[in-house]
Structures are given as C-alpha cells and as structure tokens.
C-alpha cells in the first residue's frame, strides 16, 4: 500500500473556491477540486487556462467540409459524371448542403471525442476511488485532492498545509 493522494473536505462551495486559490498559490499543480455541481469562477481559481477544444472542433469541421466538398466534386466530375436537370457537372451550389452537413458532423464528433480525450476519459478506475468518503462528492461534499505525484507533495507537509487553509477530515488515500 502506497500513498496515492490526499483528500480534504471544505464545507461549502465558497470555501472550496478559496481553497483552490490557496492550493494553486502554494505551487501545487497535480490537484483537483470536486463538487456535486459546477462552481462559477472555479476555472480561474484553479488557474486553468482555456480549453483547446474550440480549435479541435474547428479543425475537424474544416476537415469534414473538405471531405464533403472534395468527394462530391470527384464523384460528379470524374468518377460518375452524369448530367442532372441540365446543370453543369461541376455545380458547387449542389454540394453546399452535404458540405455543410459534414462540417457540422465532423465538428460535433471532434467536440465529443476531443472532450473525452482532454478529460482522459474513458477511464475505469482512479486512485481516489479507494477512499470510501469520496463518493460523497456527488452528493453534498466539497473536496480538494492533491496527487502524490506532485513535486511539492509530502505526506505530513501537505496534510498540515491543507489543515492550515481550513480543510477537515483530511485523509491519505492509499492503494496498490
């Protein structure tokens, strides 16, 4: 059994927000905050930057549009040229709908898959699950966790630090 992380309770959303700021200011990086619902301002308090998801969606959308437009152009002018209602073989107007649809589809897929990748999901287990109390974060608990992999992590030092910023029920999460 080795120590994987440390967990501390903060009674209210506001206390969690301030705790996040203090943990970040103290120099910890591998830490996380857990609450039953989203807390406004938490991203800034934890020092999280903007997610790159927008650029993933944008890139994927452009890729989808190119595929849609390119495929239709190739089919109607080269692979299977056929005159439809007297219009030119290369009729870009007719391509717009599928191009737009693939633009949206690829963008949406980029959004979902990119979000999962950036969140490191799917993931079947996490060290914090060794703690029995941790399940309460989906109900009424507001917790900070600091992972043992953080360079500043020190069993007694980090415990004292969390205690000094108002944490209660401090628990060292141990597992294999």
């Amino acid at each position: 059994m080795k120590t994987l992380a440390i967990l501390a309770d903060f009674g209210t959303p506001g206390a969690l927000l301030h705790a996040a700021e203090k943990v970040r200011t103290a120099g910890y990086r591998a830490f996380d905050c857990h609450s039953p619902f989203a807390i406004h301002g938490m991203d800034a308090a934890m020092g999280l930057g903007r997610s790159p998801i927008g650029y993933i969606v944008g890139g994927m959308a452009l890729l989808g549009a190119s595929i849609g437009y390119g495929l239709q152009t190739w089919v109607t002018t080269t692979a299977y040229p056929i005159i439809i209602s007297g219009k030119p073989l290369y009729s870009w107007q007719a391509y717009i709908i599928v191009t737009f649809a693939l633009f949206v589809l690829f963008g949406a897929l980029g959004g979902v898959i990119g979000m999962l990748r950036l969140n490191r999901l799917p993931r079947l287990h996490h060290p914090l699950f060794y703690s029995e109390r941790f399940g309460r974060v989906t109900d009424n608990a507001f917790m900070v966790s600091i992972e043992a992999g953080d360079p500043l992590f020190d069993e007694t030092g980090t415990r004292d630090f969390l205690s000094s910023i108002g944490g209660t029920n401090i628990e060292l999460v141990k597992g294999d």
Binding site: S85, A94, I96
Partner: peptide, 12 residues
C-alpha cells in the same frame, strides 16, 4: 439567404 438561393437555383 443561401436556402432561398439554393431552392431557386435547383428548380430553375
């Protein structure tokens, strides 16, 4: 605007 144009272009 595109939808309006598109239908009219198609029906011709």
């Amino acid at each position: 605007g595109g939808s309006q144009y598109f239908l009219i272009w198609y029906a011709n």
